[in-house]
Design a protein around this nucleic acid. Structure first.
Lengths: 217, 217
DNA sequence: GAGTGGTCTAGACCACGGG
DNA sequence: CCGTGGTCTAGACCACTCG
């Protein structure tokens, strides 16, 4: 890293091979390999067999976001967490979810609406659909005592997910829940999680105005 | 992972030690160590010396965001990239930057305003402050030909950065640049990057309405 | 004290892919 | 072909921390 920052190894340059570096630093090749592999994962280096290792021309800045359970997020702010289950219903999957969640048409999903509060003030409004087949036990879960968010994290192991972040004006529903005027700009997260190839849950989280999601690079 | 998903190793459980697993799978401890270390970095496991390895009770979902140069982001959408430098001035650092960027009061910064276009339609409006001391050569850089974004990535190695994502209503300036009405909800990124302990640049990026930032978990 | 994970070493075999 | 990185092995020493 020192050599890259000092442009001794400039962007685009091939750096010495693992064997050469191991000799230079008097260490095992395995150690060099681990170091270079980490830098490659961070986007600083690009490695190809036979072609060698080069300093990335346009290093991708890679930020790692920790997406905690909302309870923890609120508690980390030093606030008291509470949540309120506003609605719970069995509904036929709407058309836009049938496609996104790869469901059979006419499938019944659990539809939840909940509000997460920090010190009794609205923090996030949650609109969630759960595929009961992928979350066995959800039907009898006490979702007023433990948030669906947390119940799922503990009871429905997921294998992967897609997540999107964007800005949106508060809908009338958002506005009522978060106690703001409609069309207030809100930070919104939409997340779709999967267990193997079947969808577990799709959630839309609308954060209170002023919320900032932060990360380190 | 199979055992964790199948709840053979449930959240909170201690799993066998590296030595035991190495024996079970007839492989070297180093291989087990690498696997478990990766899972710990992904937030699936928690490891402590002597205490052993346990399955996380509340696995942090960790998303890795690739933050490419804006040109690449636009090109990846299949659109033609252009950018327009709207303003370039030397200005005394405003008060809110003196603190955030850890500058001496009265320091002169380069202040840029630029618009990035996708197929000639506004995509991101950029408001950037650059510390010329941390970016030698920036004063003579042809920032109308190459965006500051790209120039910096190539010429000013950074060591770390903070990044924040939030929603905001379009300011009059945003609105004029992006050709929207004021107060339109916009997705905004603020990024502050450092080379060692001195700030390099602080940028605010206001994306066009409808922009979604996506990631995988 | 003793068992855990963290890290390194020296060596090996292999997949890949450029020349 | 053959040099590169990718991965594994067997062994070692150490830091940490629980009991």
């Amino acid at each position: 890293m020192r050599r890259i920052r000092a442009r001794i190894w400039a962007p685009g340059d091939i750096i010495p091979s693992e064997l050469d570096l191991a000799r230079e630093f008097s260490c095992a090749r395995g150690t060099i390999n681990r170091a270079l592999t980490e830098l490659a994962e961070a986007g600083i280096l690009e490695r190809r067999r036979r072609a060698g290792t080069r300093v990335s021309l346009s290093p991708v800045h890679r930020a790692t976001l920790d997406i905690p359970v909302i309870r923890r997020e609120i508690e980390a702010l030093g606030a008291r967490y509470r949540h309120r289950l506003l609605a719970r219903a069995q509904e036929t999957a709407p058309e836009h979810l049938v496609a996104g969640m790869n469901l059979a048409r006419g499938k019944t999903l659990l539809h939840l609406k909940a509000l997460h509060l920090a010190n009794d003030r609205p923090f996030v409004y949650e609109d969630r659909w759960i595929n009961p087949e992928s979350a066995p036990g959800i039907d009898t879960a006490p979702l007023d005592a433990i948030s669906a968010n947390e119940w799922l994290v503990r009871n429905a192991p997921i294998s992967r997910g897609d997540i999107a972040f964007f800005a949106a004006g508060a809908t009338t529903e958002d506005a009522a829940a978060l106690n703001v005027v409609p069309q207030t700009p809100l930070f919104v997260i939409e997340r779709l999680t999967w267990a193997d190839s079947s969808a577990v849950t799709r959630v839309r989280l609308a954060y209170r105005p002023g919320y900032r999601m932060t990360a380190d690079i």
